[in-house]
């Protein structure tokens, strides 16, 4: 026995077929005309993007649409901040919300899987025959919320200050000028190492970088008067100087490089006016 809803659905689809047969228009040439125009637009847009990409970029030099390729993969580097393709940015940013060990599985697997299952089974729990969107308020509001949150997460992922080492390196001359250590070559070199070594994944420096795991803003670190020795010891073993610190050891960079970074930090007394 078909339920009342099933009977209603079947009757509706029967009427649909009758109406299409009686009042419909042939696919060729009417609908296929619009499909063809739309397909041509798609191909033209793709070619346009390819041309802009090629003619504004040069090898690893980024153009309007980024570089043609980055430097060759090097499993030895530890300071390269990974970036997924843009359509994974929402996932990438979700991971930053759930970055603690106990909840990370929610961000990586839990929430995405749940949303995917809800999406796939939509026709099986949204069973009313109503199709007009304004008479489907729950579905409408849920869809708007999903679109907004995906959009916000994608936007946050795209603009995350957790930038690539090569990108932050270009900020160094500006830092030297603003902080007034341009005349100190060791500090400038240290700033370069600081930019490349992934420090900005947690710390903020003159507005660049991500505030993660409670890491402090280092724009005026030198004003604290801790001294180069303290800085080097801290870089080697952070929790020996600030108990409970989440920061990993950077001893692998080598004494010489650590002194350069320490010099840079001590030279950072805050922006000069």
């Amino acid at each position: 026995m078909a339920s009342k809803r099933q009977q209603e659905y079947r009757a509706q689809h029967k009427r649909y077929k009758e109406d299409v047969a009686k009042e419909g228009k042939p696919f060729f040439p009417y609908a296929i005309y619009h499909d063809t125009i739309m397909s041509l637009v798609v191909v033209v847009v793709i070619i346009g993007l390819a041309v802009i990409w090629k003619y504004t970029a040069d090898g690893t030099e980024a153009g309007m649409l980024g570089p043609l390729y980055e430097a060759k993969a090097d499993p030895g580097t530890t300071n390269f901040v990974p970036r997924p393709d843009w359509f994974f940015y929402f996932l990438f940013y979700l991971l930053r919300i759930f970055k603690w060990p106990e909840t990370v599985v929610l961000g990586t697997v839990g929430i995405p899987t749940l949303l995917l299952v809800l999406l796939m089974t939509l026709p099986f729990y949204d069973r009313r025959p109503e199709r007009a969107v304004l008479r489907r308020p729950v579905a409408f509001v849920a869809a708007i919320l999903v679109v907004i949150s995906m959009g916000v997460l994608t936007w946050k992922g795209a603009t995350a200050k957790e930038s690539l080492g090569s990108e932050t390196l270009s900020l160094v001359p500006g830092w030297a000028e603003q902080e007034g250590f341009a005349g100190n070559p060791v500090a400038v070199e240290g700033a370069g190492l600081f930019a490349e070594s992934g420090c900005l994944n947690c710390h903020v420096y003159l507005g660049a970088g991500a505030q993660n795991l409670g890491a402090p803003d280092l724009s005026a670190e030198g004003a604290k008067g801790r001294g180069i020795e303290w800085q080097v010891a801290h870089l080697k073993n952070p929790s020996s100087k600030t108990p409970g610190s989440q920061m990993p050891s950077f001893a692998s960079l080598g004494e010489e490089n650590l002194i350069k970074i320490a010099t840079f930090l001590e030279a950072s007394k805050g922006p000069v006016k």
Binding site: Y69, E70, A71, K72, A73, D74, P75, T77, F80, V81, P82, R83, P84, D85, L164
Partner: peptide
């Protein structure tokens, strides 16, 4: 597939 830094680390 391009086997550059972005590709590898992502």
């Amino acid at each position: 597939l391009p086997w550059d830094q972005t590709a590898y680390w992502a």
